[in-house]
């Protein structure tokens, strides 16, 4: 049995050398199996219900069927790429390029904004997003960013608060917004 990396793409050469077990997919399978096993264990901790009350369809029945199906299907995942490549399809096309650092930084920025959402309030969170993301994505023209970071959240506020009657969290602006 041979193993290989996800990155081996490219037409004919790759088709010939497609490993039988795809390493990345093997890891995905392991993660899925571990997660499903943990969830299956969780189903054993649910309250038990009398058969008559549950109409002989206990609450564990359906989730366990699904977990079983997922586990069974995922067992084929590590070998799928090998057979797909034989037919000329490349499952590695999307993931052959490494995720660039800015994607991780963007993801972290999004987590930061959502973490601060309640404390900052809805309005300031929008302003923060409109300032932070363009700067992270290499936009340096302040005369573009600043009006965008003020006018766009204002427009969104008008639509949601005045138009759709959604209550925005005041957060730090509570003394001003009341």
């Amino acid at each position: 049995m041979t193993t290989g990396n996800a990155g081996s793409t490219g037409a004919k050469g790759a088709r010939r050398s497609a490993p039988f077990v795809h390493r990345t997919d093997l890891w995905i399978t392991i993660i899925i199996l571990v997660a499903c096993a943990a969830l299956w264990f969780e189903t054993t901790r649910w309250d038990t219900v009398a058969a008559q009350l549950s109409q002989n369809v206990p609450p564990t029945f359906f989730p366990r069927i699904i977990l079983g199906c997922i586990m069974a299907m995922s067992l084929y995942l590590p070998f799928e790429n090998h057979f797909k490549k034989k037919k000329g399809a490349d499952l590695d096309e999307e993931r052959s390029n490494k995720v660039v650092s800015i994607t991780f930084i963007t993801a972290l920025a999004l987590v930061l904004i959502v973490t601060l959402f309640e404390w900052l309030g809805t309005d300031l969170s929008m302003v923060l997003a409109c300032l932070l993301l363009p700067i992270l994505w290499n936009e340096r023209r302040l005369w573009v960013i600043l009006p965008f970071a003020i006018l766009f959240p204002l427009t969104v506020r008008l639509i949601f608060v005045n138009g759709l009657k959604v209550h925005f969290l005041p957060g730090l602006l509570a003394p001003i917004l009341g």
Binding site: T122, A129, C130
Partner: peptide
Amino acid sequence: KRQLLWPAVFVFSMI
């Protein structure tokens, strides 16, 4: 520009 379009999409998604 993507630098303005996608932050706007994020704001709409969040709200």
